[in-house]
Design a protein around this nucleic acid. Structure first.
Lengths: 202, 202
DNA sequence: GATCTAACATACAGTCTGTATGTCACGGGA
DNA sequence: TCCCGTGACATACAGACTGTATGTTAGATC
Protein backbone atom coordinates (compact mmCIF):
# COMPACT_ATOMS: atom_id res chain seq x y z
CA UNK A 1 0.00 0.00 0.00
CA UNK A 2 1.31 3.42 -0.90
CA UNK A 3 0.77 6.26 1.52
CA UNK A 4 -1.63 5.09 4.18
CA UNK A 5 -4.18 7.45 5.64
CA UNK A 6 -2.61 7.06 9.04
CA UNK A 7 0.71 8.26 7.69
CA UNK A 8 -1.02 11.33 6.32
CA UNK A 9 -2.43 12.10 9.74
CA UNK A 10 0.99 11.77 11.29
CA UNK A 11 2.53 14.14 8.79
CA UNK A 12 -0.35 16.52 9.31
CA UNK A 13 0.16 16.82 13.06
CA UNK A 14 3.86 17.38 12.51
CA UNK A 15 3.18 20.09 9.98
CA UNK A 16 0.62 21.69 12.27
CA UNK A 17 3.19 21.84 15.05
CA UNK A 18 5.77 23.43 12.81
CA UNK A 19 3.26 25.93 11.43
CA UNK A 20 1.97 26.93 14.86
CA UNK A 21 5.48 27.25 16.26
CA UNK A 22 6.53 29.32 13.28
CA UNK A 23 3.77 31.85 13.86
CA UNK A 24 4.51 32.17 17.56
CA UNK A 25 8.30 32.19 17.26
CA UNK A 26 8.07 34.93 14.63
CA UNK A 27 5.64 36.91 16.74
CA UNK A 28 7.11 36.70 20.24
CA UNK A 29 10.48 35.07 19.81
CA UNK A 30 11.66 31.64 20.90
CA UNK A 31 12.17 32.31 24.60
CA UNK A 32 8.84 34.02 25.13
CA UNK A 33 6.84 31.22 23.50
CA UNK A 34 5.65 28.38 25.73
CA UNK A 35 5.15 24.88 24.43
CA UNK A 36 1.57 24.94 25.71
CA UNK A 37 0.75 27.85 23.41
CA UNK A 38 2.21 26.01 20.46
CA UNK A 39 0.32 22.78 20.96
CA UNK A 40 -2.91 24.56 21.76
CA UNK A 41 -2.70 26.49 18.51
CA UNK A 42 -1.90 23.26 16.69
CA UNK A 43 -4.82 21.56 18.50
CA UNK A 44 -2.74 18.76 19.95
CA UNK A 45 -1.09 18.17 23.30
CA UNK A 46 2.48 18.47 24.46
CA UNK A 47 2.76 14.73 24.13
CA UNK A 48 2.60 15.04 20.36
CA UNK A 49 5.30 17.69 20.40
CA UNK A 50 7.73 15.60 22.40
CA UNK A 51 6.90 12.58 20.31
CA UNK A 52 7.87 14.28 17.06
CA UNK A 53 10.71 16.45 18.33
CA UNK A 54 13.43 15.78 20.86
CA UNK A 55 12.96 19.11 22.62
CA UNK A 56 11.93 22.69 21.99
CA UNK A 57 15.17 23.51 20.21
CA UNK A 58 14.65 20.61 17.88
CA UNK A 59 11.27 22.03 16.94
CA UNK A 60 12.92 25.39 16.38
CA UNK A 61 15.43 23.78 14.06
CA UNK A 62 12.60 22.36 11.98
CA UNK A 63 10.86 25.74 11.91
CA UNK A 64 13.98 27.55 10.83
CA UNK A 65 14.67 24.99 8.12
CA UNK A 66 11.15 25.52 6.85
CA UNK A 67 11.46 29.29 6.79
CA UNK A 68 14.90 29.28 5.23
CA UNK A 69 13.87 26.71 2.65
CA UNK A 70 10.86 28.75 1.65
CA UNK A 71 12.96 31.88 1.25
CA UNK A 72 15.60 30.05 -0.75
CA UNK A 73 12.96 28.59 -3.01
CA UNK A 74 11.33 31.96 -3.56
CA UNK A 75 14.69 33.45 -4.34
CA UNK A 76 15.61 30.76 -6.83
CA UNK A 77 12.35 30.89 -8.75
CA UNK A 78 12.57 34.67 -8.71
CA UNK A 79 16.00 34.45 -10.22
CA UNK A 80 15.14 31.76 -12.71
CA UNK A 81 12.28 33.79 -14.09
CA UNK A 82 14.51 36.83 -14.38
CA UNK A 83 17.26 34.85 -16.04
CA UNK A 84 14.86 33.49 -18.63
CA UNK A 85 13.44 36.87 -19.43
CA UNK A 86 16.83 38.42 -19.97
CA UNK A 87 19.85 36.17 -19.92
CA UNK A 88 22.37 38.34 -18.12
CA UNK A 89 25.98 37.92 -17.45
CA UNK A 90 26.78 36.35 -14.08
CA UNK A 91 27.56 39.68 -12.52
CA UNK A 92 24.19 41.13 -13.34
CA UNK A 93 22.53 38.00 -12.01
CA UNK A 94 24.43 38.45 -8.79
CA UNK A 95 23.46 42.05 -8.57
CA UNK A 96 19.85 41.32 -9.27
CA UNK A 97 19.87 38.41 -6.85
CA UNK A 98 21.02 40.66 -4.03
CA UNK A 99 18.15 43.04 -4.56
CA UNK A 100 15.73 40.13 -4.78
CA UNK A 101 16.93 38.86 -1.45
CA UNK A 102 16.17 42.19 0.13
CA UNK A 103 12.62 41.98 -1.14
CA UNK A 104 12.04 38.32 -0.35
CA UNK A 105 13.41 38.41 3.17
CA UNK A 106 11.60 41.45 4.45
CA UNK A 107 9.04 39.12 5.99
CA UNK A 108 9.14 39.27 9.77
CA UNK A 109 9.24 35.47 10.02
CA UNK A 110 12.59 35.29 8.36
CA UNK A 111 14.14 38.09 10.31
CA UNK A 112 13.19 37.05 13.79
CA UNK A 113 13.60 33.31 13.32
CA UNK A 114 16.60 33.00 11.03
CA UNK A 115 18.58 36.15 11.73
CA UNK A 116 17.85 37.01 15.37
CA UNK A 117 16.92 33.90 17.30
CA UNK A 118 18.70 31.42 15.07
CA UNK A 119 22.26 32.01 16.23
CA UNK A 120 21.31 32.37 19.88
CA UNK A 121 19.08 29.30 20.10
CA UNK A 122 21.06 26.85 18.00
CA UNK A 123 24.51 28.17 18.72
CA UNK A 124 26.97 29.06 15.98
CA UNK A 125 27.45 25.46 14.91
CA UNK A 126 23.96 24.28 14.09
CA UNK A 127 23.00 27.67 12.75
CA UNK A 128 25.87 27.81 10.31
CA UNK A 129 25.02 24.35 9.11
CA UNK A 130 21.52 25.44 8.14
CA UNK A 131 22.66 28.71 6.64
CA UNK A 132 25.36 26.90 4.70
CA UNK A 133 22.75 24.53 3.32
CA UNK A 134 20.22 27.13 2.25
CA UNK A 135 22.12 30.32 1.63
CA UNK A 136 25.87 30.22 1.31
CA UNK A 137 25.84 27.41 -1.17
CA UNK A 138 23.85 29.38 -3.69
CA UNK A 139 25.77 32.57 -3.07
CA UNK A 140 29.16 30.91 -3.31
CA UNK A 141 28.18 29.34 -6.60
CA UNK A 142 27.26 32.71 -8.06
CA UNK A 143 30.47 34.25 -6.79
CA UNK A 144 32.60 31.50 -8.27
CA UNK A 145 30.99 31.96 -11.65
CA UNK A 146 31.52 35.72 -11.59
CA UNK A 147 35.14 35.20 -10.60
CA UNK A 148 35.96 32.62 -13.21
CA UNK A 149 34.35 34.99 -15.68
CA UNK A 150 36.81 37.62 -14.57
CA UNK A 151 34.02 40.01 -13.64
CA UNK A 152 35.00 40.43 -10.02
CA UNK A 153 38.36 40.24 -8.40
CA UNK A 154 39.73 36.95 -7.18
CA UNK A 155 39.13 36.61 -3.45
CA UNK A 156 38.76 33.67 -1.08
CA UNK A 157 35.20 32.55 -1.77
CA UNK A 158 34.21 31.22 1.65
CA UNK A 159 34.82 34.39 3.66
CA UNK A 160 33.52 36.56 0.85
CA UNK A 161 30.26 34.64 0.74
CA UNK A 162 29.92 34.78 4.52
CA UNK A 163 30.56 38.51 4.67
CA UNK A 164 28.24 39.33 1.81
CA UNK A 165 25.52 37.22 3.41
CA UNK A 166 25.95 39.21 6.61
CA UNK A 167 25.75 42.40 4.60
CA UNK A 168 22.44 41.30 3.12
CA UNK A 169 21.11 40.18 6.50
CA UNK A 170 21.84 43.53 8.02
CA UNK A 171 20.39 45.36 5.05
CA UNK A 172 17.21 43.38 5.54
CA UNK A 173 17.08 44.10 9.28
CA UNK A 174 17.92 47.73 8.72
CA UNK A 175 15.02 48.07 6.34
CA UNK A 176 12.63 46.31 8.68
CA UNK A 177 13.34 48.42 11.74
CA UNK A 178 13.47 51.80 10.01
CA UNK A 179 10.80 54.41 10.62
CA UNK A 180 10.45 54.93 6.88
CA UNK A 181 10.80 51.47 5.30
CA UNK A 182 10.58 52.71 1.72
CA UNK A 183 13.43 55.14 2.06
CA UNK A 184 15.42 52.61 4.07
CA UNK A 185 14.89 49.93 1.45
CA UNK A 186 16.07 52.25 -1.31
CA UNK A 187 19.12 53.46 0.59
CA UNK A 188 20.12 50.00 1.76
CA UNK A 189 19.75 48.72 -1.77
CA UNK A 190 21.89 51.56 -2.99
CA UNK A 191 24.64 50.78 -0.50
CA UNK A 192 24.57 47.07 -1.29
CA UNK A 193 24.75 47.80 -4.96
CA UNK A 194 27.64 50.17 -4.46
CA UNK A 195 29.57 47.65 -2.38
CA UNK A 196 29.05 45.02 -5.01
CA UNK A 197 30.06 47.40 -7.78
CA UNK A 198 33.24 48.10 -5.85
CA UNK A 199 34.20 44.48 -6.19
CA UNK A 200 34.24 44.60 -9.96
CA UNK A 201 37.51 44.22 -11.64
CA UNK A 202 38.83 47.79 -11.67
CA UNK B 1 32.25 63.25 52.97
CA UNK B 2 33.47 62.07 49.59
CA UNK B 3 33.04 58.44 48.68
CA UNK B 4 32.02 56.54 51.78
CA UNK B 5 33.29 53.05 52.41
CA UNK B 6 29.77 51.74 52.30
CA UNK B 7 29.31 53.14 48.82
CA UNK B 8 32.46 51.32 47.78
CA UNK B 9 31.03 48.05 49.05
CA UNK B 10 27.81 48.64 47.17
CA UNK B 11 29.66 49.34 43.96
CA UNK B 12 31.82 46.29 44.59
CA UNK B 13 28.90 43.88 44.84
CA UNK B 14 27.40 45.34 41.71
CA UNK B 15 30.67 44.97 39.88
CA UNK B 16 31.08 41.44 41.16
CA UNK B 17 27.65 40.54 39.82
CA UNK B 18 28.43 42.00 36.41
CA UNK B 19 31.81 40.29 36.29
CA UNK B 20 30.44 36.89 37.29
CA UNK B 21 27.55 37.18 34.86
CA UNK B 22 29.92 38.20 32.10
CA UNK B 23 32.03 35.10 32.54
CA UNK B 24 29.06 32.78 32.58
CA UNK B 25 27.14 34.46 29.77
CA UNK B 26 30.22 34.32 27.58
CA UNK B 27 30.85 30.70 28.46
CA UNK B 28 27.39 29.14 28.28
CA UNK B 29 25.16 31.83 26.85
CA UNK B 30 22.36 33.79 28.47
CA UNK B 31 19.64 31.14 28.45
CA UNK B 32 21.82 28.36 29.85
CA UNK B 33 23.06 30.42 32.80
CA UNK B 34 21.01 30.33 36.00
CA UNK B 35 20.90 33.23 38.40
CA UNK B 36 22.01 30.93 41.20
CA UNK B 37 25.27 30.23 39.39
CA UNK B 38 25.87 33.93 38.93
CA UNK B 39 25.34 34.94 42.53
CA UNK B 40 27.30 31.99 43.87
CA UNK B 41 30.27 32.95 41.72
CA UNK B 42 29.89 36.55 42.88
CA UNK B 43 29.59 35.29 46.50
CA UNK B 44 26.28 37.00 47.18
CA UNK B 45 22.67 35.84 47.07
CA UNK B 46 19.91 36.28 44.56
CA UNK B 47 18.55 39.04 46.73
CA UNK B 48 21.49 41.24 45.85
CA UNK B 49 20.97 40.57 42.18
CA UNK B 50 17.31 41.57 42.19
CA UNK B 51 18.13 44.59 44.33
CA UNK B 52 20.61 45.97 41.83
CA UNK B 53 18.89 44.87 38.62
CA UNK B 54 15.27 44.76 37.65
CA UNK B 55 15.54 41.27 36.18
CA UNK B 56 17.95 38.96 34.44
CA UNK B 57 17.72 40.87 31.17
CA UNK B 58 18.60 44.06 32.96
CA UNK B 59 21.75 42.41 34.26
CA UNK B 60 22.52 41.25 30.76
CA UNK B 61 22.16 44.80 29.50
CA UNK B 62 24.74 45.95 32.03
CA UNK B 63 27.08 43.14 31.04
CA UNK B 64 26.80 43.92 27.37
CA UNK B 65 27.37 47.59 27.99
CA UNK B 66 30.51 46.70 29.92
CA UNK B 67 31.83 44.44 27.18
CA UNK B 68 31.01 46.85 24.38
CA UNK B 69 32.45 49.77 26.29
CA UNK B 70 35.68 47.92 26.89
CA UNK B 71 36.00 47.01 23.22
CA UNK B 72 35.23 50.55 22.11
CA UNK B 73 37.80 51.93 24.49
CA UNK B 74 40.44 49.48 23.35
CA UNK B 75 39.68 50.38 19.77
CA UNK B 76 39.89 54.10 20.37
CA UNK B 77 43.20 53.99 22.24
CA UNK B 78 44.50 51.65 19.59
CA UNK B 79 43.56 54.15 16.94
CA UNK B 80 44.81 57.17 18.82
CA UNK B 81 48.21 55.66 19.23
CA UNK B 82 48.34 54.79 15.57
CA UNK B 83 47.18 58.25 14.55
CA UNK B 84 49.89 59.87 16.64
CA UNK B 85 52.62 57.69 15.26
CA UNK B 86 51.68 58.41 11.68
CA UNK B 87 49.05 61.01 10.99
CA UNK B 88 47.14 59.38 8.16
CA UNK B 89 44.44 60.62 5.96
CA UNK B 90 40.92 59.72 7.11
CA UNK B 91 40.66 56.88 4.66
CA UNK B 92 43.75 55.17 5.98
CA UNK B 93 42.48 55.64 9.50
CA UNK B 94 39.25 53.97 8.51
CA UNK B 95 41.07 51.13 6.89
CA UNK B 96 43.34 50.64 9.84
CA UNK B 97 40.43 50.90 12.24
CA UNK B 98 38.63 48.06 10.53
CA UNK B 99 41.57 45.76 10.91
CA UNK B 100 41.98 46.81 14.54
CA UNK B 101 38.39 45.90 15.19
CA UNK B 102 38.98 42.43 13.88
CA UNK B 103 41.84 41.98 16.32
CA UNK B 104 40.15 43.58 19.33
CA UNK B 105 36.85 41.73 19.01
CA UNK B 106 38.17 38.25 18.57
CA UNK B 107 37.59 37.72 22.27
CA UNK B 108 34.87 35.17 22.91
CA UNK B 109 33.15 37.46 25.40
CA UNK B 110 32.38 40.00 22.76
CA UNK B 111 31.17 37.55 20.19
CA UNK B 112 28.78 35.57 22.30
CA UNK B 113 27.42 38.44 24.37
CA UNK B 114 27.26 41.32 21.93
CA UNK B 115 26.87 39.63 18.57
CA UNK B 116 24.99 36.40 19.31
CA UNK B 117 22.89 36.76 22.44
CA UNK B 118 22.53 40.53 22.31
CA UNK B 119 19.92 40.80 19.59
CA UNK B 120 17.93 37.80 20.82
CA UNK B 121 17.85 38.77 24.50
CA UNK B 122 17.31 42.50 24.25
CA UNK B 123 15.34 42.55 21.04
CA UNK B 124 16.24 44.77 18.09
CA UNK B 125 15.35 47.97 19.91
CA UNK B 126 17.48 47.86 23.04
CA UNK B 127 20.31 46.18 21.19
CA UNK B 128 20.50 48.83 18.52
CA UNK B 129 20.51 51.50 21.19
CA UNK B 130 23.62 50.03 22.77
CA UNK B 131 25.33 49.39 19.45
CA UNK B 132 24.50 52.88 18.32
CA UNK B 133 26.07 54.26 21.45
CA UNK B 134 29.29 52.31 21.33
CA UNK B 135 29.88 51.43 17.72
CA UNK B 136 27.94 53.17 15.01
CA UNK B 137 28.66 56.61 16.35
CA UNK B 138 32.38 56.19 15.96
CA UNK B 139 32.09 54.49 12.62
CA UNK B 140 29.65 57.05 11.21
CA UNK B 141 31.98 59.84 12.24
CA UNK B 142 34.86 58.26 10.38
CA UNK B 143 32.73 57.71 7.32
CA UNK B 144 31.52 61.29 7.30
CA UNK B 145 35.05 62.58 7.44
CA UNK B 146 36.17 60.38 4.60
CA UNK B 147 33.20 61.47 2.53
CA UNK B 148 33.60 65.17 3.08
CA UNK B 149 37.22 64.64 2.18
CA UNK B 150 36.07 63.19 -1.11
CA UNK B 151 37.91 59.94 -0.45
CA UNK B 152 34.91 57.67 -0.67
CA UNK B 153 31.73 58.06 -2.65
CA UNK B 154 28.78 59.89 -1.21
CA UNK B 155 26.31 57.40 0.22
CA UNK B 156 23.66 57.57 2.94
CA UNK B 157 25.73 57.34 6.10
CA UNK B 158 23.32 55.55 8.40
CA UNK B 159 22.77 52.42 6.30
CA UNK B 160 26.39 52.39 5.20
CA UNK B 161 27.57 52.39 8.80
CA UNK B 162 25.08 49.68 9.77
CA UNK B 163 26.07 47.45 6.87
CA UNK B 164 29.80 47.90 7.40
CA UNK B 165 29.36 47.12 11.09
CA UNK B 166 27.58 43.92 10.16
CA UNK B 167 30.40 43.11 7.77
CA UNK B 168 32.92 43.48 10.56
CA UNK B 169 30.81 41.46 12.98
CA UNK B 170 30.59 38.60 10.56
CA UNK B 171 34.29 38.80 9.79
CA UNK B 172 34.95 38.49 13.48
CA UNK B 173 32.62 35.53 13.89
CA UNK B 174 33.98 33.90 10.76
CA UNK B 175 37.48 34.11 12.14
CA UNK B 176 36.44 32.76 15.51
CA UNK B 177 34.69 29.66 14.25
CA UNK B 178 37.19 28.69 11.58
CA UNK B 179 39.30 25.59 11.91
CA UNK B 180 42.39 27.57 11.03
CA UNK B 181 41.97 30.96 12.73
CA UNK B 182 45.14 32.45 11.33
CA UNK B 183 44.23 31.79 7.73
CA UNK B 184 40.67 32.86 8.38
CA UNK B 185 41.79 36.09 9.98
CA UNK B 186 44.04 36.90 7.03
CA UNK B 187 41.42 36.06 4.42
CA UNK B 188 38.64 37.90 6.23
CA UNK B 189 40.89 40.91 6.59
CA UNK B 190 41.68 40.72 2.92
CA UNK B 191 38.01 40.66 1.96
CA UNK B 192 37.15 43.53 4.30
CA UNK B 193 39.98 45.56 2.91
CA UNK B 194 38.91 44.85 -0.63
CA UNK B 195 35.32 45.86 0.08
CA UNK B 196 36.49 49.08 1.63
CA UNK B 197 38.84 49.79 -1.23
CA UNK B 198 35.92 49.31 -3.61
CA UNK B 199 34.19 52.24 -1.97
CA UNK B 200 36.92 54.66 -2.86
CA UNK B 201 36.14 57.33 -5.32
CA UNK B 202 36.79 55.67 -8.68
C1' DG C 1 21.37 57.49 70.83
C1' DA C 2 16.92 56.88 68.38
C1' DT C 3 15.26 56.34 63.95
C1' DC C 4 15.05 55.68 59.26
C1' DT C 5 16.50 53.81 55.07
C1' DA C 6 19.24 51.30 51.86
C1' DA C 7 21.36 46.88 51.02
C1' DC C 8 21.03 42.89 51.19
C1' DA C 9 19.26 37.55 52.69
C1' DT C 10 15.48 34.21 52.84
C1' DA C 11 11.25 32.04 51.81
C1' DC C 12 7.63 31.35 48.64
C1' DA C 13 4.62 31.00 44.55
C1' DG C 14 4.03 30.49 39.75
C1' DT C 15 5.59 28.84 35.40
C1' DC C 16 7.90 26.12 32.29
C1' DT C 17 10.44 22.19 30.37
C1' DG C 18 11.28 17.44 29.87
C1' DT C 19 10.14 12.65 31.15
C1' DA C 20 7.69 8.67 32.56
C1' DT C 21 3.61 6.34 32.20
C1' DG C 22 -0.84 5.15 30.29
C1' DT C 23 -4.20 4.47 26.37
C1' DC C 24 -5.99 3.66 22.00
C1' DA C 25 -6.13 2.95 17.13
C1' DC C 26 -4.20 0.68 13.35
C1' DG C 27 -1.82 -3.01 10.84
C1' DG C 28 -0.29 -7.69 10.20
C1' DG C 29 -0.13 -12.64 10.92
C1' DA C 30 -2.40 -17.19 12.46
C1' DT D 1 -11.79 -12.94 12.18
C1' DC D 2 -9.29 -12.54 16.22
C1' DC D 3 -5.26 -11.37 18.60
C1' DC D 4 -1.34 -8.97 19.48
C1' DG D 5 2.37 -5.73 18.85
C1' DT D 6 3.77 -1.18 17.88
C1' DG D 7 3.50 3.51 16.91
C1' DA D 8 1.11 7.90 17.94
C1' DC D 9 -0.33 10.28 20.84
C1' DA D 10 -2.50 12.14 25.92
C1' DT D 11 -1.78 12.71 30.85
C1' DA D 12 0.51 13.18 35.10
C1' DC D 13 4.58 14.26 37.49
C1' DA D 14 9.18 15.94 39.00
C1' DG D 15 12.69 19.25 38.78
C1' DA D 16 14.41 23.80 37.82
C1' DC D 17 14.17 28.46 37.41
C1' DT D 18 12.52 33.23 37.68
C1' DG D 19 10.56 36.96 40.06
C1' DT D 20 8.43 38.76 44.31
C1' DA D 21 7.30 39.49 48.99
C1' DT D 22 8.99 39.66 53.41
C1' DG D 23 12.48 39.84 57.00
C1' DT D 24 16.96 41.60 58.93
C1' DT D 25 20.98 44.32 59.69
C1' DA D 26 24.35 47.85 59.13
C1' DG D 27 25.17 52.47 58.44
C1' DA D 28 23.64 57.40 57.75
C1' DT D 29 21.08 61.32 59.78
C1' DC D 30 19.40 64.19 63.15
Amino acid sequence: MGVTRRAEHVADTRDALVAAARELFAERGFAATGTEEIVSRARVTRGALYHHFRDKKDLFRAVMASVAGEAAEALVTHELRHAQEQPDEPWDQLRHGFQSFLDVCTTGDFQRIVLIDGPAVLGPGAWDALVEEYGHGLLAEWLRRAMSNGEIDELPVAPLAALLAALLSEASLYTARADDPDTARREAGQVVDRVLAGLRRG
